[in-house]
Structures are given as C-alpha cells and as structure tokens.
Design a protein around this nucleic acid. Structure first.
Length: 270
DNA sequence: CGCTACCTGGGT
DNA sequence: ACCCAGGTAGCG
C-alpha cells in the first residue's frame, strides 16, 4: 500500500513533526531490516543525532542527520512509519524504533518485513541504495512531455514495465502506473516506441494527475500520526477486475506484465 | 531481459 | 494447502 503519494505524505509528516528533534536511541527488532552498516554501528551512530531534514527521492525517504549522516528508508510493499508516545504498545511487526525527545518514538512498521533502513554519509547512502541511478522525478517541475519522450519514447520495451523502472522514471508504482495508463487511454502492453506525440502528452498528464491527486488526498493509508488518507476511492481500474470501466462500461481485464498484476480496460485503452 | 529471494497474513 | 501481495536487489 505504499506508493509514491503515500511516501510523500510520510515525508511531509516527518518535516512537520520530526525534523529538529533528537534521536536518543535506536532499537532494531528485525536485524535484516538494516541494510548497512552492521546493526551495532547503526545503533551507535544514530544515538544523539538531530534530524535536520526530510526529503523524498523516488520512493526512498531520506532523513538528514547532524554529523553529516543520512538515514535512508524504504517502505517496500506495505511498510509505514508512525510517531507515537513511547509508552504506547508497539504494533506487531515493528521492525525498528527511534526514541525521540518528549517521550515519543518513531516506528518503522511492516507486516511483510521487507522495509529497509540504511545509514551512512550522504555519498555512502547514495551509492549503497543506487540513488544516483534513479531517473527523473515524475513530479519535478522540469519533467515535461519532452522529458518523458526522452526517457521512454525510443525504447522498445513494454510500456508499463518501463513506467515501473525507477531508472527510467522515478516515482510510479504498480497501482499508479495502471491508473495513469487508464487516464491516458493507453494499452499497458504497447511498445513504448510506438507512442505518438499526442499519446505521450496524454500519458504525461495522466501520470501527473494520478500522483498529484494522490498526494492532495493524503494517500490511501494512514499518515505519521495515524490519520486516514482519503485517496482510496480514486481507483478507476486497480483491483476492479470484471467491473465496468467508468469511462466506457467494458469489463476491466487483468493480465501480468513483467511479473506484475496489470489492470486495464480492453474497450478504451489502445 | 526474466527469474528468484525476501517474509507474513489474508483470501480462496 | 495453496496462492498472492502496490518493491527492489541480485543472479544468470
């Protein structure tokens, strides 16, 4: 449930409620959730750090810390963050906690246990997580139709698979890729190289609308403080297999592309 | 590129 | 008792 709009909502919550505060101690409940450094170093280096910034790059959360450190987090499929009073019972599947001042605790929670944290200098984290390999941000103001054309226009790969490739375009997840293609009226199985200028323009608009609306509605899941997002009802086709397409009434179909579930309308996505 | 691994719970 | 999950890394 954690795609780019949900990550952006978490980052905004971190900016509002965590930046400026001090990490007293970190606790690692699932050692495999720490990618690097080794768990003892991870804990030792975090103690006493102040959180100075919160940024998002693709679906990574990047927390700037005092002492020139960067804490990189990835929620993977279902992970989330929650800020809660330290005395409040930790929810099941809490992987890592950061004890803050004022008796509060930041918690990384993930039922699947896939979510990950990494700590180091900005260079080490960038290198270790491959941040330098990421493509342009889908919501960067400079990411216009020409930029989209540059990234996918000449590639012969399957359109949807390219949209999910974070080295091609940073920010789209499976749900948002399906919904963006529906908004643009494009068949996800197309070869990207066959898109016309008009189709690229529609795709660009679809991607931007999907992501900006998702963020504007607070994402689909709960935020840092546990408040519910309202974006769930914006799904037109995702997980609506067999239901009528809101635009043309044809039954929504599902297939598998690059190993991922892919929903589309056979009637109005060409 | 296509496959597997990671890991738990909910759905069928 | 299966099968599946909105992501990524790492393998051949």
């Amino acid at each position: 449930m954690t795609e780019m709009p949900e990550v952006e909502i978490l980052v905004r919550g971190l900016r509002e409620h965590v930046v400026g505060r001090t990490i007293q101690t970190a606790e690692v409940l699932l050692p495999s959730a720490v990618r690097f450094p080794a768990v003892p170093e991870f804990i030792a280096q975090l103690a006493g750090c102040m959180v100075t910034s919160a940024e998002r790059r693709a679906k990574y959360i990047l927390l700037g810390l005092s002492d020139e450190l960067l804490l990189g987090l990835h929620m993977m499929l279902w992970g989330t963050l929650r800020l809660a009073p330290a005395v409040e019972a930790r929810p099941p599947h809490t992987l890592i906690t950061w004890r803050l001042d004022r008796d509060e605790e930041l918690r990384l929670i993930d039922q699947l246990g896939y979510a990950r944290a990494a700590l180091g200098t900005p260079e080490a984290v960038s290198q270790g997580l491959g941040l330098h390999l990421l493509g342009p941000e889908a919501l960067d103001p400079g990411f216009d139709v020409a930029a989209l054309a540059r990234q996918i226009g000449r590639r012969r790969g399957v359109l949807k698979s390219l949209l999910l490739n974070q080295r091609v375009l940073a920010g789209l997840g499976n749900r948002d890729a399906d919904e963006s293609l529906w908004l643009a009226g494009l068949d996800p199985r197309r070869s990207a190289a066959t898109l016309t200028e008009a189709e690229l323009t529609r795709l660009h608009a679809g991607i931007r609308e999907m992501l900006t609306e998702g963020i504007a509605q607070g994402g689909t899941q709960r935020d840092l403080l546990g408040r519910k997002g309202r974006a769930r009802h914006r799904r037109h086709i995702f997980e609506r297999t067999g239901l009528p397409c809101p635009r043309c009434g044809t039954a929504i179909a599902i297939t598998r592309l690059g190993g991922r579930r892919t929903h589309y309308c056979p009637g109005c996505q060409q």
